[in-house]
Design a protein around this nucleic acid. Sequence first.
DNA 1: AAGAGGCCCTGATAGC
DNA 2: TGCTATCAGGGCCTCT
Length: 287
Amino acid sequence: MPELPEVEIVKQSLEKNILSKRIKKIIVNNRNLRFKIPTNFEERLENKVIVKVSRFSKYIIFELSNQIYLLMHLGMTGTVHLIKKNKIKINTNVSFYSSPNLPKKHNHVEIFFLSSKIIYNDPRRFGFFRIIENKDELFLFLNKLGPEPFDKSFNLKYLHEYFRDKTKNIKNFLLDQKLVSGIGNIYASEILHYSGIKPQKKGGNLKKKELIKVIFFAKKVLKKSIKSGGSSIKDFKNISGKKGFFQNEFKVYGRENLKCYKKSCTGIIQKKFISNRSTFFCNKCQK
DNA sequence: AAGAGGCCCTGATAGC
DNA sequence: TGCTATCAGGGCCTCT
């Protein structure tokens, strides 16, 4: 599911709903995510207040009142669900958590607050949690990632030097989180179509003009997607169950054999596997 | 050292 | 209907 825009949407709704709240209880139903959830996970987090919710790249970062950080990565199929506690009297004073849209399986982690809870669901379990002990360690961890497309340091000089003498194709470079972080398989195809560049083209062979386009459209596409609430292919939703709309704006992704949308372009969108990931591009206007 | 490929895992869908 | 094969939005690890 989640590339930078989708993670940003999740982050925004988490911020709105659980900032300043105290974690009352954590229930881990399955510890076997991408990385095993440690046995002291619950005790480290219970009774702590969520002081800040932020995001870098595809990571959501919770800062807690004991100065530790909880990182959450959604992998391919991770989703977060907000469930509000309803007090409904059914003869007795029973209170329960209403959950109309909650999946029945794969609800691996439940984090309870006073009058709500969030649930981490992830069928493929490629997502993970990670506790970071302090600010320095957080800095070191995030520093292993490249800049986000929005960052000033993601500029012509940087790309030019990074690509020098490299033979890797531009599509794989955009997926390389050490070069630029937050772009995934959908947006890589979209950005290259806007830029008019073939995904197979070697990074080292890009002209200055092309590099400038990549930089410009990486920012533009991601920002536009965030404004649309992200892309809801399959089942991406924000934590309250609301879908995004950017999938309606896709120019190439999932449009195999269809006509290119670019004005005066007569091309047909192709699908090819590049390093085992499906890649979409126009056979005419991307060179 | 850079780059390609395999692998972790479940579910939806297509094809027989 | 019920099998099998293929493909999914990510990223880490290994091999050359």
